[in-house]
Amino acid sequence: KKSYVLIKVKNPKTKETHTIVVPEENLEEVLKALASQPNVKVVDIERFP
């Protein structure tokens, strides 16, 4: 059974918020990819039960 993680990201320029759902096993690479985006800020990470 896969567990999923909900990542909320915000664009500081446009103030838009997006929610991305990723499998927990991919969380680290997704966070690394997001960290390299200049106008993306991770605001929240939630685990799915």
Rank of each mutant, 00 (worst) to 15 (best):
S36W: 06
E28L: 12
E46C: 13
E29H: 09
E28A: 11
L6W: 10
Y4R: 04
I45E: 01
V5P: 01
I20R: 02
K41V: 15
E28R: 07
V22H: 01
A35F: 09
T19Q: 05
N26W: 14
P38C: 12
T19R: 07
V5R: 01
S36F: 08
V9Q: 00
E25L: 04
T14W: 04
V40S: 06
K15D: 11
V22N: 00
E24V: 08
L31S: 01
P12A: 15
Q37K: 10
V5F: 13
V42I: 12
H18D: 04
Q37I: 10
E24H: 05
H18E: 04
K41I: 15
K8W: 11
K8N: 04
L27F: 04
K2R: 09
N39K: 04
P12G: 14
V40H: 04
V5C: 05
T17H: 08
E16H: 13
T14C: 07
V42K: 01
R47N: 05
L34V: 03
V21G: 02
K8Q: 07
V22T: 04
S36L: 12
V40M: 13
K32W: 06
R47T: 06
K10N: 10
Y4G: 03
L31G: 00
V43F: 03
N26L: 14
L31Y: 02
E24I: 10
H18T: 10
T19C: 09
V42Y: 02
L27H: 02
V22K: 00
E25R: 05
V43I: 12
N26R: 13
F48Q: 06
V22L: 03
V9F: 13
F48R: 05
L34P: 00
Y4P: 10
P38K: 11
S36Q: 12
V9I: 10
V30W: 10
R47C: 11
T14H: 03
V5S: 02
V22R: 01
K41L: 14
L31H: 00
E25T: 05
I20V: 04
E29F: 09
P23S: 11
P38Y: 03
K32H: 08
N11L: 06
E46P: 01
R47Q: 05
P12D: 15
V21K: 09
N11T: 04
K8L: 12
T14Y: 04
E29A: 10
I20F: 11
K8I: 14
S36D: 08
P49R: 04
V30G: 01
V5L: 07
K32L: 10
P49N: 06
L34I: 08
A33T: 06
I7H: 00
T14G: 03
P49V: 08
K32D: 05
K41Q: 13
F48D: 04
A33Y: 15
K1H: 10
K10S: 13
K32P: 00
K41N: 06
I20N: 00
V42N: 01
P23V: 07
S36T: 09
L27P: 00
K2C: 12
I45D: 01
A35H: 11
